[in-house]
Amino acid sequence: MEKLVIGTRGSKLALWQSNYIKSLIEERYENIKVELKIIKTQGDKILDTPLAKIGGKGLFVKEIENALLDGSADIAVHSMKDVPMELPEGLILFATPLREEPNDAFLSVKFNSIRELPKNAVVGTSSLRRKLQLLKLREDLIIKDLRGNVDTRIRKLVDGEFDAIILAKAGLNRLKMTDYIKETVSIEDILPAVCQGIIGIELREDDKRTQEIVSFINHETTMIRTKCERAYLKKLQGGCQVPIAGFSQIKDNKIYLKALLSSLDGKTHIYEEGFSPIDKAEELGKSIAEKILNNGGKEILREVYS
């Protein structure tokens, strides 16, 4: 019996994602046993500080990537929106299953939509991207930081600490925790995070055997969208400290990208969109980023990183 080890965080969502990949592999190959290696990342240890202040999304993947590099794990399963633009030397993003719903979700006990919230309602989110787009819709809202796993965040909502919270709908769908979703937020109201709803499988570049095993999992159009959105993010050099959004769709053999960069004070929102043939997906991502940079984005990034 051949053994494969998946490196994963220990959160409910991370375990759901890893068990999903495990089940796909074991259903396909009777001779392969998949084990989960739960790894506590820096991002899991620091729960009381906004991510932008402690180093951003790489905090959720570094220790798992180290396990790949030292051979104690064969596969890493990530939420792609947590994966930094640059992968360590020797590792590759190899496969992405079909994308889940990428929209954000509005959760509340008492209210049915963002627009129905009373004046000065308290909304919880730890995302700068969500915060600034929410305030563009409703400048009267009071936005407070909300960290912790999905259970913790929903409990804080139910306990009355917040009038509403905003979470990624994909994770709620996967965990079947949709009871308090009152509104699927349209991408016109809040443009999603780059690669939201996408699971990524990261492997060692020289591990051809594992690549051969998991290649069947890859969903081609999801991978094309991933490459487009990540090329856009990479060109902007975007991390957690930067309010960046981006969302691609494929229709009639073309890929369309909507993108946003906001200033930290929320006074400037630079939107760009465009399309290209799907075989030019990465070039589209880069060109949309270039337009944003040339349209005031360079000044915003200089301010963020100064």
Rank of each mutant, 00 (worst) to 15 (best):
K53E: 14
L91N: 07
V123D: 03
A52L: 00
K110I: 05
T96P: 07
S127W: 02
E101I: 14
I92F: 12
N120Y: 11
R129Y: 00
R115I: 00
L91D: 10
P84K: 05
A52C: 00
A105K: 04
R130I: 10
L51Q: 03
E86Q: 14
L68K: 03
D48A: 06
E101P: 04
G56V: 11
P84G: 05
A121Y: 02
V123L: 13
A73N: 09
F106H: 06
E100I: 09
R99S: 06
L117A: 06
A76R: 06
E89M: 09
V109K: 10
I54C: 03
I54K: 13
S108R: 01
V109Q: 09
S113L: 12
A105L: 04
P84D: 06
S126E: 13
G90N: 07
K119F: 11
R130G: 00
A105R: 02
K62W: 00
L91K: 13
T49F: 00
H78K: 01
F60A: 02
T96E: 13
I114W: 08
N112E: 15
T125A: 00
S79H: 13
D48T: 06
V83Q: 02
A52R: 02
D48H: 03
L93E: 12
E101T: 15
K131M: 09
P102K: 07
L117R: 09
I75K: 10
M85A: 14
G55P: 02
E116W: 02
K110F: 15
E100S: 15
L128C: 04
K57R: 10
E63I: 07
G56T: 06
P97V: 12
D48S: 13
I75E: 11
N103V: 04
L68H: 04
K119H: 12
F111V: 07
A105C: 06
I114K: 06
G124S: 10
P97R: 12
K81D: 15
K131T: 10
L93W: 07
G56M: 10
F106A: 01
T49L: 03
N120C: 04
E65A: 09
M85L: 11
I114V: 09
